[in-house]
Write a protein that binds this DNA or RNA. Structure first.
Length: 393
RNA sequence: GUGGGCGUAGCCUAGCGGUUAAGGCGCCAGGUUGUGGCCCUGGAGAUCGAGGGUUCGAAUCCCUCCGCUCACC
């Protein structure tokens, strides 16, 4: 397989990197945000829409597609790319996260996880080998190791046991993966413990994967805690391999974590928020359902170059959401994904110009993610937590 | 016209003698991070159709009126 990742530039004042991912279905400029399309569709959009908003790679999900329609069907229909008519790069998640978040967990052992389908309640058994087999049949360009994702708040002993199980599974994934032209990424675990993250990084990088993910974050921990773990973990990963932070995608998180040296991100947040009427703008997040938009003639973001902002007023989107019209989902999703893609483009350009540190400072100063009260609450939570956690690290 | 039923927040209802009238929808705001379009959390909003009476106490019981509705003429 040809070189998967190449560096194009680095920032002199932070750890930010710009690079290129090269896959059988095209190349992707990094840092990159990958929209989530679990069921073989980024909800409300067509592949043409995705190309227009500048989505490089998209993320599908082995768990969802295995339960429905099943990989046999997708295989007979020519694989996932052909099935969903998207000829760009695809990354599939193994389903580890879903087993532990969606499915009714029955039993987990070193062998694998027994759980109930969230669709029909049937009993399912997923092992590292099966997760790889499913992902090989789907045919994504990048696939993920099967891992365990313990909830935030578990104590250190449980996090360590879970991490060790993920390590065991990572080794089995590595040795059962056969398909050429498909890169298997290992996943670093260890919760919010810096020490466990170090151990996990040493173990997983020892298995020599073509790329590495930081998993088990963004599960309810305060943002500052997540940043500090990413800051400690990302630099330990091999410089010449791509680094993927799983499940992170708010604008401020993207900028913060690029600065720690992360190259790839995915998150349901931009698309999910869009379907609930929340959109990003240059200054802050907006809730289009708010009454104040009823007469707003301008676009939701005057700086945005997406088709939604070009053609429609905020007042019209407000109306569509009030009526629960289907077009609302599409227009808001187009905007949020364009916002994320454009943010990544600007970030990348500033890294290449070596002006990223200034860009980051200016962006974070202007962009207000949520309202002040909610942020203060988060900060308080973090301070209390830091007090309680002192003995652990 | 006669007899019955019903009038409780913008809408639909619960409460049928006992603190401060409850809930759903809607409305006003928050939240949402390896996606179920769901969901969660706050908030505002009611002279209980009007007037009179009984009672320590009435949305609740009685009387009159008004409005809606059904049946019979």
């Amino acid at each position: 397989m040809s070189q998967l990742f190449s560096l194009a530039g680095t920032c002199s004042r932070t750890r930010a990197r710009a690079g290129t991912l090269t896959t059988p279905h095209g190349s992707v400029a990094t840092p990159a945000f990958m929209p989530v399309g679990s069921q073989g569709t980024v909800k409300a959009l067509t592949p043409d829409d995705l190309r227009v908003v500048g989505a490089g790679m998209i993320l599908a999900n082995a768990y969802h597609l295995h339960l429905r329609p099943g990989v046999e069907i997708i295989g007979r229909l020519g694989g996932l790319h052909r099935f969903m008519s998207w000829d760009g790069p695809i990354l599939t998640d193994s389903g580890g996260f879903q087993v532990f978040s969606l499915g009714h967990l029955r039993r987990v052992s070193d062998e694998g996880a027994v759980f109930r389908s969230h669709i029909d309640g049937s009993e399912q058994f997923l092992t590292p080998e099966l997760a790889i087999e499913i992902q090989e049949k789907l045919g994504a360009d990048i696939i993920m190791a099967f891992d365990e994702c313990p909830p935030y708040g578990d104590d250190l002993r449980i996090i360590r046991e879970s991490m060790e199980r993920s390590h065991l599974w990572a080794r089995r994934c590595r040795s059962s993966h056969r398909r050429d032209g498909q890169a298997l990424f290992g996943i670093i675990h260890g919760g919010t413990s810096v020490e466990l993250r170090r151990q996990s990084t040493a173990f997983v990088t020892g298995l020599d994967f073509p790329g590495y993910a930081i998993g088990g974050l963004s599960l309810g921990e305060p943002k500052e805690l997540m940043y500090s773990i990413v800051e400690e973990t990302a630099p330990l990963l091999p410089e010449e391999r791509p680094r993927y932070l799983m499940g992170v995608g708010s604008p401020e998180d993207l900028v913060e974590c690029v600065a720690c040296g992360v190259d790839m991100f995915d998150s349901a947040l931009p698309t999910r928020l869009a379907r609930n009427g929340a959109v990003f703008s240059r200054d802050r997040r907006l809730n289009l359902r708010n009454a104040r938009f009823a007469l707003e003639e301008g676009p939701i973001d005057p700086d945005c170059d997406c088709s939604t902002c070009r053609d429609f007023s905020a007042a019209y989107l407000h109306h569509l959401f009030r009526c629960e019209e289907l077009l609302a989902y599409r227009l808001a999703t187009i905007h949020n994904l364009r916002f994320a893609a454009r943010l990544m483009e600007q970030v990348r350009q500033s890294i290449l110009d070596d002006s990223f540190a200034r860009f980051k400072e200016a962006f974070l100063k202007r962009y207000q993610p949520t309202d002040a009260e909610a942020r203060a609450e988060q900060k308080q939570k973090w301070l209390e937590l830091r007090r309680d956690r002192q003995p652990l690290d």
